[in-house]
Simulated scan of single mutants.
Amino acid sequence: MSDTNVQEKELPRYRPATDIIEKEDGFHLLVDMPGVSKEQLTIDLNDNTLRVSGKSESLLASQERNLDQEFATAEYVRSFTLSDVIDQNGIQANLNNGVLDIHLPKVQKSEPKKIEIQSA
């Protein structure tokens, strides 16, 4: 087993703080992902479960050493169960300044319509 594999298994795992906001265009999940880059972020949708995971990376250069460390490499994982009111094909995500904004649009309501009766 390499040092990299051991290091990844020992990463602290956090459940990121999340705000859920309802707007006219649907729901927005605002997920705190400090230090996570787009390349280290994964969003999976399986059935009605949306899973967000990401890994932050240490900002320490190879020639530097820590005297005190409060921010380290860590893994963030959070899952959400989606209801039938969500249009799963329209989900979009944007990562900006360490905050992941996942837009969950609502399914469009069908408009009432009159059914014509055909004569035989």
Results as ranks from 00 to 15, higher is better:
S2M: 00
D3R: 03
D3M: 07
T4A: 13
T4V: 12
N5F: 09
N5I: 11
N5G: 05
V6R: 13
V6S: 10
V6A: 15
V6Q: 11
Q7H: 14
Q7Y: 15
E8V: 11
K9F: 14
L11H: 06
L11A: 08
L11E: 04
P12C: 02
P12A: 10
R13D: 01
Y14N: 10
Y14K: 11
Y14C: 02
R15L: 11
R15V: 14
P16C: 05
T18E: 03
D19F: 07
D19Y: 04
I20M: 09
I20G: 01
I21V: 15
I21Q: 11
E22P: 01
K23Q: 13
E24D: 12
D25G: 02
G26H: 05
F27C: 00
F27M: 06
F27V: 03
H28P: 01
H28F: 10
L29Q: 06
L29M: 06
L29Y: 04
L30T: 03
L30S: 05
L30W: 04
V31I: 15
D32H: 04
D32A: 14
P34H: 09
V36D: 00
V36G: 02
S37C: 03
E39F: 04
E39I: 07
E39G: 06
Q40H: 10
Q40P: 00
L41R: 05
T42S: 14
T42L: 09
T42E: 11
T42R: 14
I43V: 15
I43G: 02
I43K: 06
I43E: 10
D44E: 12
D44R: 09
D44T: 11
L45K: 01
N46D: 13
D47Y: 10
N48E: 06
L50R: 14
L50Q: 06
R51T: 15
R51M: 12
V52K: 06
V52Q: 08
V52A: 06
S53L: 03
S53N: 08
S53W: 02
G54W: 00
G54C: 03
K55I: 12
K55D: 07
K55P: 00
K55C: 02
E57R: 10
S58M: 06
S58V: 02
L59F: 04
L59S: 09
L60F: 08
L60C: 08
L60M: 14
L60E: 11
L60R: 14
S62E: 11
Q63F: 14
E64F: 13
E64H: 10
E64L: 13
E64R: 08
R65S: 13
R65Y: 09
N66S: 13
D68T: 09
Q69N: 07
Q69G: 01
Q69I: 15
E70Q: 15
F71W: 08
F71H: 09
F71T: 12
A72L: 10
A72Q: 10
A72T: 12
T73R: 14
T73N: 03
T73I: 08
A74T: 05
A74R: 15
A74P: 02
E75M: 07
E75K: 13
Y76P: 08
R78Y: 01
S79E: 14
F80P: 03
T81V: 13
S83Y: 02
S83D: 15
D84K: 12
D84Q: 10
V85S: 07
I86M: 07
D87V: 02
D87Y: 05
Q88Y: 02
N89D: 15
N89C: 03
G90N: 13
G90L: 10
Q92P: 00
Q92R: 14
A93V: 00
